[in-house]
Every structure is written in structure tokens, then in C-alpha cells.
Design a protein around this nucleic acid. Structure first.
Lengths: 109, 109
DNA sequence: GAACGTGCCATAGTCTAACTATGCCAGGGG
DNA sequence: CCCCTGGCATAGTTAGACTATGGCACGTTC
């Protein structure tokens, strides 16, 4: 079975936006933040999140450094780069453009 | 390269809705209709459309019969089934639910 | 101090579905 | 006759979200 909750491609947008809002975060925080703000509709699985973060590192959208959490655990803190901020703008406008177009189709008379 | 225009999964929604609106249509008409109503934002490639229609036939969401177009060409005419209409309702509510959740995240302060 | 739960990271492998590229056939116009 | 267009179809590639699994360290409980 598949839950199909997060449409492929939009995970980047969600992560980029979350990091832009909150500055430095580690993976767990990112996932929890997305889940909470979406009222539990979007559940970011660890097996989706960490591969996505790796790809984003490679693309240069984020940087990572190891640190320690408030709960005294080791964690990787991610931060947006300038390229990441640019990518966020791109993804936002693409999202709006495409969702607007789909909405036109499904609301057409 | 990839154009990334139609998010995976939403093609079903677009086709179902288009058929619901216009009754019987053949593939070419469906693609043109979606493209036109979306103001050319959504471009349904033939290599995406026909496989999707095949899957929808197998799932029982549509039926097909061969006919002749106004331009005197042979074409397969697709029509929604009752299951297809039910599926359209499901896809609509899922779409709204997920897009609403994503919107909350990308508009959060 | 052993056992367990939880926080946190990571990867291997599966699967869906949209894409590219290609091919076919028929009608009509130059 | 040839090409353009309309129209259908499939084989193969690719991205990326998922499941399943594993590991480790801290705190708490008994």
C-alpha cells in the first residue's frame, strides 16, 4: 500500500520553506514542524526525509553541520544557502502556477 | 531533463474531471481540453495520456469504444463509469485536503 | 545496572507514474 | 506522390516517496 500523502516534488518545497521560516533545524524538527503545521495531514517519513536532505545537500540548497540538541543528543543541523533561497522562490512560483492551472481545470464548467 | 509540469497522481484527476464535464471524448480531445483550459500550463504528453487511460480502463473508471471523429478519423471514445464518478469525488477531496495542508505550511509565518 | 523507550540518522530496495523516443496508420492537401 | 496532421500505442528511462531495517546514545524504570 501507499499513503500518497506528499506529492512527489513538493517535499523539497516543504523543507525549503520550513528552513526559511525557522533558520537552523535538524531533520527530526523539520519533519515534526511540517506535520504539526499541516494539522497532521502531511506525514514526512524518515525514509523520505533523509534521502531528500541528502539530495538537497548535493544540489547545494542546504548546508549541514553536526551539533547537539537541547535534549543532549547528536543531530545534523541544516541551513539554507543562497541557492536554496533562490530555489524556494522557484518552487513557490511553480507550485502556484501549476496548482492554479489544475484548479482552473477542476473548476471549469 | 524533465518538465515537471503535471504532479504524479493528478493526471487521473484531470482526465476524470474533463470526462465528467464533456461526456464522451477521445484521447486527443482530452489532452487538448486540459491544455486549453489550463491556459497552456499543463501539457499532457501522449506518452503520459495513453498509458494513464489504459490504467483507468483496467481500474474500471472508464469504458472505451472505437468510433469516427468529425474529421473522419478513427478514434477511441472514453466515457466515465459510475466507479469513475466515485473516484473523481475521492480524488477531488484528497486534492483539496493535501493542497490545503501544503498551503498552510508554505504560508505559515 | 539491565531493559526499554525515544530521539535521531541512514541506506537498500520497491514501486508508481510521468516522461522521451519511437513507431504505426489513415485522410487530405499541395 | 509526398508530407502534414490527427490519432493510438508501447518500450524504456527516471525521479522520488515509500517500506523495512539497522544502528547508536540518552534517560528512565525496575
Amino acid at each position: 500500500m501507499h499513503r500518497d500523502e506528499i506529492p512527489p516534488g513538493t517535499l523539497y518545497l516543504l523543507i525549503l520553506k520550513t528552513l526559511a521560516r525557522s533558520g537552523e533545524m535538524h531533520g527530526y524538527e523539520i519533519a515534526n514542524s511540517i506535520q504539526r503545521i499541516s494539522d497532521d495531514v502531511l506525514q514526512v517519513e524518515e525514509g523520505s526525509l533523509y534521502p531528500a536532505l541528502q539530495r538537497m545537500l548535493i544540489k547545494g540548497w542546504v548546508t549541514a553541520k553536526w551539533g547537539t540538541t537541547a535534549g543532549n543528543r547528536r543531530a545534523r543541523y541544516y541551513q539554507l544557502t543562497a541557492a536554496g533561497r533562490r530555489q524556494l522562490a522557484v518552487e513557490m512560483s511553480q507550485f502556484e502556477r501549476v496548482i492554479g492551472a489544475i484548479t482552473r481545470v477542476i473548476e471549469a464548467v
